[in-house]
Nucleic acid binder design. Structure first.
Length: 582
RNA sequence: CGGGGAGUGGCGCAGCCUGGCAGCGCACUUGACUGGGGGUCAAGAGGUCGCCGGUUCAAAUCCGGCCUCCCCGACCA
């Protein structure tokens, strides 16, 4: 490609809206353009990078035995009612009507469609196992798109779905996908760590996320310093800091005027927050059932983890009570107490509570609290469970010795053991070897392709610009000819080299513009192709071409006749360096 | 949805407080010089000042409403 003809211009200054490195650099390099919140156009350079990422995904899916399909983005809403997920997705689901008034949705993911497709075309256990995948556009009306390509409303996703006759089969399919994911992200130059994850609205039993650690991310993961335990904080287990054992003391009312927060309470009465009980009120519901009030209790030094809480409540969605509801249920915010609540509502206590004697709790009347409150003696919990949020510095529950550190990260991929949720909902059973119907066990495996592009930049850039991994670089090499409009021999050589490199199978971006050397070099650094070749009178005098490696800044002078072979060798080595199994 | 910030040529910004010709840098066009790390000079093109309404002789500027975008949080397969 000749740069003089390339659509899209580089920007010296990034738009003020862009904050993360990948967003800024992709805009500056002319790779993407924002149309509205959460919707980006890919310009030629960006589109090539994404296509490269897509092809890496495709190669690994195929190598892992996947078969590619293409599925409709518009889908009948009935399909989503049948699985119960119209409700689960809620406002995130894009709805529309066709001209006959039929309700349609824009697919945010494709479990429903794929399961129906599978059911229509499979009838025997002999058809299994099978893993189908698609790489295509999905739509989610995200409340808050952010971070450039990190969270958008229209995005490209690879989704794979496996169908097996039993759990062992699923394990094999799942492991194959897990290994493929490891290879995909490594090959794309995006370091990831697999973490245990919550399965969320997609359902299922057990899932892992591939997280790229980055401050630009929106997920928080807990990593153990010692044992390798890694989990999303939505899920992360941890050892609660132990409380000193004490015999239960008599309950004692204490005046605490104007005190409504744990911090105020701890300060006023000069006790550590770990000697207090924190009460938080929720409404649990969703679906057609009426919402139910939930009284959650956690030790004052910890926070409620709403995802864990929701899971303990059979996956029902939880939301904070409104002030009106708090009043309606006779609770006193700031001095709420599980004592005296009886069985008026479901009380869920965190594991930290039974092990911590003589806690300071609310008195359920303003300006008063109770000392020496003990679970079991003074109040009862409907459920005692892990509903607390792991925090930096907590001890690891897996090894008992390591310390948990929290990191931000971008969720690059998510692999789920789905089970039979969808195969049952869509009657996707096949006939087993014994002549009896078998309900296939499913797995599903997603990758955000746009996120690969963003993360590849996030992980591979410097102050001058992008430094693309060869696997996703829009082109292999930027051929820079200096003063070619004034220097016919240079122009001639550059043209010849351009043709020669392309013939050798290299992808070349030829900077044939009449620009000053400074402009060309800076643009080359910004666009960030793995290698830069400079043809100039100076190099010509030596019979050589200057070859610079973007990532390292290393420069070598290659004899004119050896340029193509040298680049091919470097390219092969770079590809191999990214292969985790090479 | 809660909190905060911002909308003025393609990008970055000033002007607004105190109403009176819409400006600057970069980018763009033409020409000349120059040119191995965003060069110089000259001449140009390009803007319903987010939208609607109000106040006023006069609104980018003051007042009201709305829209959009960004950030933090909530939500998020």
């Amino acid at each position: 490609m000749r740069m003089s003809r390339l659509f899209g211009r580089t920007l010296r200054q990034a738009p003020a809206d862009a904050e993360t490195a990948s967003h800024r650099l992709l805009l500056r390099a002319g790779c993407i353009d924002q149309l509205m919140a959460g919707a980006y156009s890919y310009m030629p350079l960006g589109r090539r990078a994404r296509l490269k990422a897509e092809n890496v995904v495709r190669e690994e899916m195929d190598a892992a035995g996947g078969q590619e399909v293409l599925l409709p983005a518009i889908q009948p809403v009935e399909l989503w009612q049948q699985s119960g997920r119209e409700e689960a997705f809620g406002p995130v689901l894009f709805h529309l009507n066709d001209q006959r008034g039929r309700g349609l949705v824009l697919g945010p993911t494709h479990e429903e469609v794929i399961t129906r497709l599978f059911a229509d075309h499979s009838s025997s256990y002999r058809d299994l196992p099978v893993t189908l995948y698609q790489i295509q556009t999905k739509f989610r009306d995200e409340g808050r798109p952010r971070g450039g390509l990190v969270r958008v409303r229209e995005f490209t996703m690879k989704d794979a779905y496996s169908f097996d006759v039993d759990e062992d089969g699923l394990t094999d399919s799942y492991d194959a996908m897990f290994q493929a994911y490891r290879r995909i992200f490594a090959r794309c130059g995006v370091p990831t760590v697999p973490v245990e994850a919550d399965s969320g609205a997609i359902g299922g039993k057990g899932s892992q996320e591939f997280i790229f650690l980055s401050e630009a991310g929106e997920d928080t993961v807990a990593l153990c310093s010692d044992c390798g335990y890694a989990a999303n904080t939505e899920k992360a287990a941890f050892v609660r800091p132990p409380a000193a054992p004490e015999d239960p003391l008599p309950v004692e009312e204490v005046s605490t005027p104007g005190t409504t927060t744990i911090e105020q309470l701890a300060t006023l009465l000069e006790v550590p927050t770990s000697r207090t009980a924190k009460a938080v009120f929720y409404m649990a519901g969703g679906g057609s059932d009426p919402e139910e009030p939930i009284f959650a209790v956690v030790r004052g030094d910890l926070e409620i983890n709403e995802v864990k809480l929701s899971n303990e409540l059979d996956g029902r969605a939880v939301r904070a009570m409104t002030d009106a509801e708090v009043e309606h249920f006779g609770l006193v915010a700031g001095s709420a107490s599980p004592v005296g609540l009886g069985d008026r509502m479901t009380v869920v206590a965190d594991l930290s509570v039974p092990d911590s004697p003589n806690l300071l709790a609310g008195a359920n009347k303003a300006d008063f609290h109770l000392r020496n409150v003990n679970l079991g003696r003074d109040w009862q919990a409907s459920l005692v469970a892990d509903i607390a949020l792991a925090e930096d510095g907590h001890r690891c529950a897996a090894c008992g010795t390591g310390v948990i550190r929290l990191h931000r990260g971008i969720e690059m991929g998510h692999v789920f053991r789905l089970g039979q949720i969808y195969s049952e909902a869509f009657s996707a059973d096949v006939l087993g070897a014994d002549g009896q119907p078998v309900v296939p066990t499913m797995g599903c495996y997603g990758i955000g392709v746009d996120r690969i592009v963003a993360a590849a930049v996030e992980a591979n850039h410097d102050e001058d610009g992008i430094s693309w991994p060869v696997s996703v670089a829009p082109y292999d090499v930027q051929l820079v000819a200096l003063r070619l409009d004034r220097d016919p021999p240079v122009a001639e050589e550059a043209e010849a080299l351009y043709a020669e490199l392309e013939n050798a199978g290299l992808e070349v971006l030829f900077d044939d513009r009449d620009e000053s050397p400074g402009v060309k070099f800076n643009d080359a650094d910004l666009i960030g192709l793995p290698w830069r070749l400079t043809v100039s009178a100076r190099n010509q005098a030596q019979g050589a071409v200057e070859l610079r490696t973007r990532a390292t800044g290393e420069v070598e002078h290659v004899p004119r006749g050896e340029v193509a072979s040298r680049l091919q060798a470097l390219r092969a080595a770079a590809i191999e360096a990214l292969d985790p199994d090479a």
